[in-house]
Write a protein that binds this DNA or RNA. Structure first.
Length: 278
DNA sequence: AGACGTACCTGACCGC
DNA sequence: TGCGGTCAGGTACGTC
């Protein structure tokens, strides 16, 4: 589920509420969602004061002085604030704060992971080790994209989904970005030129910024830290719109859905077909 | 090294 | 109503 805008929305919601709070108790209901040593996670975070929150790509973390709690939400994970003792089904981790509120990690499909890491060596953590530059980082430039793309013959969509190249994009936003950029998802990454690379980067920033402002996309179960749904699903132009007419001004194409590497790809065969572009 | 297929889980939804 | 099949927003791992 959660891609960069959803994770950023959750981070912002938590930030206001948890900074300065001491971790009073940690309840770990399942140990198989922990990357690393579950007992060490509990021991390291106990009594620490949360001093900051952070995010790179789809990984978010709560920083304390000597330890940080990293979270990857997988497909179905969410972090939510609870003011009482009632926990939803599939609550795997509950962090009680000094004011009595709780941060719950809930994840039915259990594709997500939590990890305790040393804030000084965050890049060496399991969750962040293979995560590249954040898609909203100013340092992600056309030369950076081209340098990585030149070694890959896979399609542009698959390339952008690889978190080691650029972090934060998932299936929904990659489809939307390539549609708005007028790029075919199947163009070999190594064939992208400088101008196309720049357009992809500019469009990525636009789409992600708009999606963050809308508090993310709720297809079925994304919620922010306060349990609110996102609003960006109203603005999706291709994702989930198979058979509809393309929304691009003057384009009469019909949105198609194909499966690439096991993932649904939605695109307009007219305005995203490189062969028809000059 | 890069590309590809598969596995990991549960819940929602569809057709019979 | 109930059952089986299919699909889902992500990533890691093994194999070629």
């Amino acid at each position: 589920m959660p891609e960069l805008p959803e994770v950023e929305t959750i981070r912002r919601g938590l930030h206001r509420r948890v900074i300065g709070q001491r971790i009073a108790a940690i309840t770990l209901n399942r140990t198989d969602i922990v990357a690393g040593d579950p007992e060490a996670l509990v021991a390291s975070l106990q009594s620490e004061i949360i001093c900051d929150t952070g995010r790179r790509g789809k990984v978010l973390w709560l920083s304390c002085d000597s330890a940080a709690l990293g979270v990857h939400l997988g497909m179905s994970g969410r972090l939510q604030l609870a003011e009482d003792e009632s926990h939803p089904e599939h609550t795997h981790l509950a962090i009680t704060l000094s004011d009595g509120a709780q941060i719950l990690y809930v994840d039915p499909r259990r594709f997500g992971r939590v990890e305790c890491f040393n804030p000084q060596h965050a890049v060496a953590s399991d969750l962040l080790r293979n995560v590249g530059i954040d898609a909203l980082d100013e340092g992600w430039t056309a030369p950076v994209l081209l340098e990585a793309a030149t070694r890959h013959s896979i399609g542009l969509k698959q390339f952008l989904l690889d978190q080691s190249h650029v972090a934060g994009l998932g299936n929904i936003y990659v489809c939307e970005i390539l549609h708005r950029a007028g790029q075919s998802p199947h163009t070999p990454a190594c064939d992208v030129d400088r101008e196309q690379a720049q357009r992809i980067i500019d469009t990525t920033r636009q789409v992600l910024t708009e999606a963050v402002e809308a508090r993310g996309t709720t297809i079925s179960d994304h919620r922010d830290a306060l349990g609110r749904t996102g609003g960006y699903q109203e603005y999706l132009c291709v994702y989930g719109r198979e058979g509809e007419v393309c929304t691009v001004e003057g384009c009469s194409g019909v949105i198609q859905k194909v499966v690439d590497a096991g993932r649904s790809t939605y695109f307009c065969p007219l305005c995203q077909d490189c062969s028809t572009r000059v």
